Amino acid sequence: MRIEVLNISKYRTSARVGDDVPVVLPGALIGVCDGATDPRGTAVDGIGTGRLAALTVASAAAELAIDPDSRDMPAADLLGHLAGALARRTAPLNLEIPPSTTLALVFDCGDRWRFLTLGDTGIRINGTEVLRTDKLIDDVSTHARIAVFRHLAGEGPATDATEAATRRAILLGLDNAVAEGVIAGDVAENVIDATVRALKLDDHRAPVTRFLRGGIKTQFEFSNDPDSPLGFDTMNGNTPRRGDYVDVSRPKAQVQSIEIFSDGYPAIPDAVSLEAWEAVFAKAEAEDVHKIGAYATVKGSTTDEFFDDRTVIVVDRL
């Protein structure tokens, strides 16, 4: 078995680490945890809270996987175990936004692989079968961000300042953008209307409006909420309650390759290799650097930062 890992920070100078944390324990566990960057920039002992969450959960998963019997733990119990570890680390900090992370874990269970994902960090088996869970609230953020970006860019070329202002508007909310004079009140309402129409969310206008006005800094309010249309399961110290996870097993004899990847890759390549993943990334950067077109995401790239951290692990059966 050959295992290759590529982990690249969103900061182009690599002077700062990102929020993706890969974990590789051959014979036990291979995975990626992608911490959610705190929109307020909160850090604990010099570590961003997204990375703190990812490190904590990755460490807890590794410790659990050392025991072969634990690799067969029911998914709800396993996720509860990881949530408990994160809560013990972060609850005493009394942070306004709970540190959170996605996860994509592959457990070695002897004659089979067990695949467990929570959130949009994904796994691809044999170059064809993709396991991951996307969330509607990200689609809402993305549509609104593109509308704000295009408004601010106007007829002129977009700049890093355009991206910075757009990020601030989406992260801290449209109400904040209006208060700071970045956009007018009617523009904010038009952005909300356009997002509702584009995603056919007329029946859910109230939560969409509340979210966009408050910004991504309020996104945690929808986490692990089984009732909200914008709800999503995440690992933030509270027990995931929506069932938004994937838990499947495959006989090892039927698995030739495994790829585990974070959402820093805006598309999935056809081929199975680190080079193929990087080629897809480079294509997106060249064709849609602002991430408002074919590779639309919640953030765009700038001269200082890529739009997100990116990590891919490729496992080949030799």
Rank of each mutant, 00 (worst) to 15 (best):
E180N: 11
I125E: 06
A43L: 12
T162Y: 02
G122E: 01
F222C: 02
I183R: 07
R168Q: 13
R114K: 03
A169K: 05
F149V: 05
T42P: 00
I260E: 08
R317N: 13
R167D: 14
L64D: 08
S273P: 03
R89D: 00
E287D: 14
D77S: 11
Y11G: 03
I258P: 03
V248M: 07
D77F: 04
I146Y: 00
K252I: 10
D160I: 03
G127T: 04
L52D: 08
V208A: 10
K299P: 11
P99M: 03
T42K: 12
I3T: 13
A164Q: 11
D69R: 15
T239V: 12
A62Q: 12
D244Q: 14
N94S: 14
D69I: 14
V57L: 00
G27F: 04
R250Q: 10
P74F: 10
I292W: 09
W277N: 02
A161K: 13
P251N: 10
F232C: 03
T56N: 00
G185N: 12
D288V: 02
D227M: 11
E180Y: 06
V312G: 07
F232D: 01
T302P: 09
A15F: 12
R2Q: 15
H204R: 07
A284H: 07
D225W: 01
G231F: 08
N176Q: 15
V289N: 13
P266K: 08
G50T: 00
A85T: 04
P68E: 01
A75K: 07
Q254M: 12
I146F: 00
A165C: 05
L64F: 08
A65V: 10
D134G: 09
L64T: 11
G243R: 10
V298T: 14
G293E: 13
V298I: 15
P269V: 04
V44T: 02
T49E: 02
L103H: 03
R168H: 13
H143G: 01
G264T: 06
T13D: 15
T297R: 14
C109F: 04
I313P: 04
V187M: 13
E155M: 06
A61Y: 03
V289C: 12
V23D: 04
G237D: 01
A194M: 09
G156N: 01
T101Y: 04
A147M: 02
D225P: 00
R213F: 10
A83S: 15
R250C: 06
N126A: 09
G18K: 09
F306S: 14
V32H: 04
T302F: 08
D139Y: 06
P229F: 01
S262F: 09
D244G: 09
A36F: 03
F261N: 04
G293M: 10
R124E: 06
L230F: 00
S141F: 13
E63Y: 06
E4K: 13
R167L: 11
R168L: 11
V106E: 02
A147I: 01
D45N: 14
G173T: 06
T102G: 01
